[in-house]
Amino acid sequence: MYSVEVQHISKSYTVKKATTPALKDISFAVKKGELFGIIGPDGAGKTSLFRILTTLLLADEGTATVEGLDVVKAYKAIREQVGYMPGRFSLYQDLTVKENLDFFATIFNTSVEENYDLIKDIYVQIEPFRDRKAGKLSGGMKQKLALSCALIHRPKVLFLDEPTTGVDAVSRKEFWEMLKRLKEQGITILVSTPYMDEAEMCDRVALMQNGSILSIDTPQQIVASFAQTMLAVRSASMLQLLNKVRASSFVENAYPSGIYHHVILKQQATADQLQQELSAAAFADLEIKKGQPTIEDCFMQLMRI
């Protein structure tokens, strides 16, 4: 059974006669209770997609359902069943932490007490500041309050638009741990992010670029389906090494990746051939090994097709 089904959704924006497509014929489905990631850079169409699914924006073409309800015909019923945390902080800055939470609970005809068990884990971390105005909170605390407000009516589906953007590596890890605990409560979670390394935290991911989905699968399967041979190379002079491998006739693509350069070989080329060529060039401290593709490597490869 699916929680979210999207079929052939397209959306474009027209500003001063210039039309920009934001979503191009997007189709996918998210299973109930799944933690589903939408991974892509700015401009991929992530926010447009979330706004269509949360009934805040109309698609130009295609249909979509959330918990079996049509996003156009049953928009009121959907709004009762979904929680949405937009990318930009959108709580009331001049209300306190407690007031914001009470406000969202009241709108949904419920109370903080009734659903406290669901948010307890997250809310206890900001409860010491319950009388502070939301606008005066730090970034991390705002994020926790926004998540608490999005959960207070016990939604069946949670939409989180770039919750970890601009957040440091430690807080990002903590946030994903919170999501895993929410998933255990049976909530379906759709989360978007520009950080490719967060894909591995999801059950399945859709890789998006320029309004299209490049691939949908489990992160393990996406990495496993990387078809080319990838090597990791390094030496004392990384910039010269990069220029050398890029110029090689055996190499399809090469780019920096942390302390190594990742090198994608052409179909018929072998690691030995590149090894010989680089050894002849006498790079100091040359190291060549088989590379382990990451989601980011897969994304870049898919961008080339």
């Binding site: 892509g40 850079p41 700015d42 953007t165 490719m196 780019y255 994304f299 870049m300 961008m303």
Partner: peptide, 8 residues
Amino acid sequence: TGGVDPVT
């Protein structure tokens, strides 16, 4: 480079 695609 926040939010920029991996190639860029």
